[in-house]
Design a protein around this nucleic acid. Sequence first.
RNA 1: GCCGAUGUAGCUCAGCCGGUAGAGCAACUGAUUCGUAAUCAGUAGGUCGCCAGUUCAAUUCUGGCCAUCGGCUCCA
Length: 637
Amino acid sequence: MNIKIIFPDKKEAAIKPGITAMEAISEWQKKALDSAVAVKVNGIAVDLSYILKEDSIISIIDISSAEGLSILRHSISHVMAQAVQNVFAGAKVSIGPSIEDGFYYDFEYKEPFTTDDFAKIEKRMREIIAADYSFIREDLSRAAAVKLFEKKGENYKVELLDDLSAEVKVVSVYKHDDYVDLCRGPHIPSTGRIKAFKLLSVAGAYWRGDEKNKMLQRIYGTGFAEENTLNEYLKLLEEAKKRDHRRLGKELDLFQINEEVGPGLIIFHPKGMMLRYIIEDWERKEHWKRGYEMVMGPQILKVDLWKKSGHFDHYRDNMYFTEVDEQAYGIKPMNCLAHMLIYKSKIRSYRDLPLRYFELGTVHRHEKTGVLHGLMRVRQFTQDDAHILCTPQQLNSEIRAIADFVNYAMGIFGFEYEVELSTRPENSIGSDRDWELATTALENALKDNKTNYIVNEGDGAFYGPKIDFKLKDALKRKWQCATIQCDFTLPERFDLNYIGADGERHRPVMLHRVILGAVERFMGVLIEHYAGAFPVWLSPTQSVLLTVTDKHIPYAEKVYGELIAAGIRCEKSLENEKLGYKIRQAQIQKIPFMLVIGDKEVEANTVSPRARDGQNLGALSVKEFIALVQEMCEKKK
RNA sequence: GCCGAUGUAGCUCAGCCGGUAGAGCAACUGAUUCGUAAUCAGUAGGUCGCCAGUUCAAUUCUGGCCAUCGGCUCCA
């Protein structure tokens, strides 16, 4: 009995069962095999050597697809694991998946690996690739697999096998040369198919991502179909480094982090502070437009209040404490407490709700040393924080309005973002029912707004579930900025009430939310997003006056006076240098407009703006230039 | 906090097997007065992250600490 095979072009073939997918494809379109790394049979990814036993719809997994590249990288990780074991006898393997831009493999070994070892490992990898070993899949009973890896002393693999659910009776292993790995596959047909790879870095990583477990050594690498795409990627990494906000922060004189002051504490220089002021100023107005009221709480609050809120029990490790007049105080790590006390200062009616309290609130959190990172992860930061107190009925529209606000704000800056819904964590307060209500409220709002999101189980705050909005930095690392957290618990703990239409007391719900998140982090992402070349409305310096010779200084001073009087942020470059030099300096500082001032301009009473992109705007009167900049600010350009 | 790497002039980086340090840019001084990405010459600038130890002698070797970088864990 023949079986029916349907190829990607819908062509059908009747073949004898028992031939491999590769053979079947070869009959269909031999050329397709040149760039095929694996194949999908009835929607399931398998090796090209997969034996066809039943009617099958076949599609090719090509190296040019994301899936194909991922399979290639996974195979490279196996080759690397073998190479590491060959070079470092006794190294134990654990897991080695492909990841977004490459792959890694985690090892246990008595000595630390360093990047100096890469040359040796890569050399051995090239030998393995040159030998063109086939990847051979073998299905084993679970017991046989345990025995196999026990014999090899691969206790991490044994642990993985032990933890499989009881229903799993058969597992697969992949072999090439003398290397065997527990693996679902699929893999490329043979090691010789690897054309371009590079090991990138070593790092510690806890076994199974749990800090209670042993720390293994992770080697990161990447691989591509061809040498030139690999080189392009490496070049891209170099380019990304130039966008690093820590580097640009120094080059553009925006901020410093000083060892004498302490880690994770930011000192804003004039230009960084100007950028920050512009962002905050814009944001305040956006809040007023949306019915928020500005408030401000104190920096330190008595410890008893933090006990009442649950922060002392659940957040203490992240808090700083101090003592004043024999009274214990906690330095605020969040802004919500004062906002609740504002709510409580009066009897509230359902007619008053929702109340939206907004505070650019500076908080302190004791972050672990190893996580500090430029502006992105600091110990003192300012949140554009708000707490919305509303009735349960208002919850949906409030959440949706916040999500729209976030979307509007991100649109102003041209950010793409990802949305995650985080559910109840282990160490949390509140009843199951409240968590259920809160989570559903968030989820419904996302659905009503037709937002794509993923669910992050157990990643919520201790008092409630949250919607997180994540932005990416230059190296594609994701940073949480905006967040909406739904909280039934703190209103309970603080006994917040409102009088309903029925004359009875009711409990309001509280939303915690930030739009930009932490101003510091947002600025960090923003700097990388624009690579330091801020649009005119955000640029700390919008224009710089460049004199051709000393004799143009008086006119430049006059223009300067007019520009700053009109609110244009302007600098003077009057030093005795050639114009080319001044332009280069201004270009490096990424200033949007350079105003050239020479004889022509003095005579005609004009300025000649040169845009950052090199474009010459011709002669403009000072008034015209002011209008141009003001219009760009107005339009957020 | 954990694993690894790194720390030399304001910045970017050299400096071998121990004999108290250099380059480019920036700064300063002078000359030049110049039209769209670097004018020339000169000068100055360093407790070699900090603290111990080994040594006749430590930027160099050893230990501890601090900070930074890449990850892990955690997070705005």
